[in-house]
Amino acid sequence: MCVNKSRLLLLGGAIAAAAIVAVVLIVVLPSGSGSGAAETMTATASTPQSTTPVTITDILTGIPQHGDTLGRASAPATITIFEDPQCPFCRDWMLQTFGAVVTDYVRTGKVKLVYRGIEIIGPNSEPGLRAIYAAGQQNKLWNMVEAMYRLQGAENSGWITESTVRTAAHSAGANADAILAAMNANSVTAKLNQAARQSQTDKVQGTPAFVAVKPPAQAQMLNLPALDAATFESALNAALQ
């Protein structure tokens, strides 16, 4: 093919323009999706449209919390929740839907929640998970989960530091020094390993993931087209029938 000089110049211009566009996109991209901005948690109870601002303390007060389990041990159904502290959708679920689920199912004794923290976003998730499980030794795991999400930064930006853990522990009403001291304990490592094994058993491919079981029925992964309270409770009701 014979190509004239002017056309090659045009191609050179196209390549230069494309390079500029690509560089601009790449420079803008690392802005990330995480946010450390404070939000008000909402509990939607049985009427998801009418939200009532409450705090994590309001939601959890009076509900038994032992280690990684929230709710009465005698609850007939269990929801195992797989989360990563760096996962933005997990944060959305915790800050927007968790309150309604606790109000409607856990406080009423229908369901208990079991936390399974897994590293799925990146290596910086591990210290966050260790801090969360360490808070579980003070029966503050769920408070710590929520507090970490409120401090969430961009994925893999290294936002989970000792300072983050201290701030979250303070918000969760937990002893920060005790959490930091326990983060590398064998018992915490065992919890991480247990969660990782269970995620493989339950074929968890992403977070958040929810496995509901009401014996003698088989456990089943909730199929959620969205994470709002109405959608979640509809899927949960179907699973627990």
Binding site: L25, S31, G32, S33, G206
Partner: peptide, 13 residues
């Protein structure tokens, strides 16, 4: 899912 949920999945929102 990991890729789609990463910070590389969005550009300025």
């Amino acid at each position: 899912e990991k890729v789609q949920h990463s910070s590389y999945a969005e550009l300025a929102g």
